[in-house]
Design a protein around this nucleic acid. Structure first.
Length: 286
DNA sequence: GCGACAG
DNA sequence: ATCTTGTCGC
């Protein structure tokens, strides 16, 4: 229902006609309008509070109720072939942060990257990796998933972490490396907020937009780091809990689950390129 | 007109 | 996302 021609200016979205039309093939234009509807539909299933049966590690809790397996996902791209990519899923154990599971998927992406529609490019591979884990190594299936990309911190409040959370029915946390400017938030404003509290105990600041909405948190995850990370809710978790879990998993700037998924997917691609390119001996022409 | 636009 | 060198420090 609701084909592309029925789109009106009154519809709530920050995606302009120009964005929907511009540099991509004509036959794909109608997809972008569909994508808006899909995001809107899935967004109705979002749960923005703690909704899980485990507890955060505390000395007093019994071991069998604690959060133990945390997943991380990311995708890396080949530097030579722009659409060749490697999706990666890792599962780490808490509190050791030992890697208990890893899997990769090498593929050619057909879907372009369109700002605010990242999920339509990256989610399919990652969901496939989760499904494979469920079928082959269920004991390691994560109780929580950390995503390289935003959750609520998104023009329509439904970034990749939300998208994955709803479709996989998993608690998810979104971690961004740069700020998606939404609701008047700017990296300059965030920097000022962080500097204002730099002598306080807390190393993070709530991201509150012009509208008064809370979109997430900016956090200096390591001591001297100038660049904060941007934490936002994905699905079935509160922002408070999300921040606590990020702190539990941060050895470096990015939390270990997403950092390891990033490192290992890049590494996997590098090795694959060595096998694919038949050696560095000849300039590759016969 | 200019800047911004997760990965 | 990826392209890139050195540099500072533990």
């Amino acid at each position: 229902m609701m084909e592309g021609n029925s789109r009106e200016k009154g519809e709530a979205s920050s995606v302009s006609e120009e964005t929907l039309a511009a540099p991509w093939p004509h036959q794909l234009n109608h997809n972008y309008a569909n994508w808006l509807q899909i995001q809107d539909t899935l967004k109705k299933k979002l749960i923005l509070e703690d909704d899980f049966d485990w507890k955060l590690p505390t000395p007093t809790e019994e071991e069998h109720v604690l959060l133990k397996y945390v997943g991380g996902v990311d995708i890396s791209f080949s530097k030579h072939s722009n659409s060749i990519a490697c999706g990666c899923l890792v599962v780490l154990e808490l509190p050791s942060l030992q890697i208990e599971y890893q899997d990769f998927s090498l593929l050619t992406l057909q879907v372009p990257y369109v700002p605010s529609f990242l999920a339509f490019r990256e989610a399919p591979v990652l969901l496939q990796l989760l499904e494979k884990l469920k079928n082959n190594a269920m004991p390691f299936y994560p109780q929580l998933l950390m995503v390289d990309g935003n959750g609520l911190l998104h023009p329509r409040g439904f970034g990749l972490a939300c998208h994955l959370g709803v479709l996989a029915d998993l608690p998810t946390i979104g971690i961004g490396k740069s700020l998606h400017h939404v609701d008047g938030l700017t990296q300059f404003g965030v920097r000022q907020l962080l500097e204002a509290k730099e002598n306080s105990t807390e190393d993070f600041t709530t991201l509150t937009g012009c509208s008064g909405c809370t979109w997430g948190v900016a956090m200096r995850s390591t001591l001297g780091s100038m660049k904060p990370i941007f934490i936002s809710i994905g699905h079935r978790i509160s922002l408070d809990t999300a921040v606590k879990i990020v702190k539990l998993t941060c050895k470096y700037r990015m939390p270990e689950p997403v950092r390891q998924a990033d490192i290992r997917s890049r590494d996997y691609l590098r090795k694959h390129q060595m096998e694919t390119s038949e050696g560095c001996k000849r300039p590759s022409q016969v």
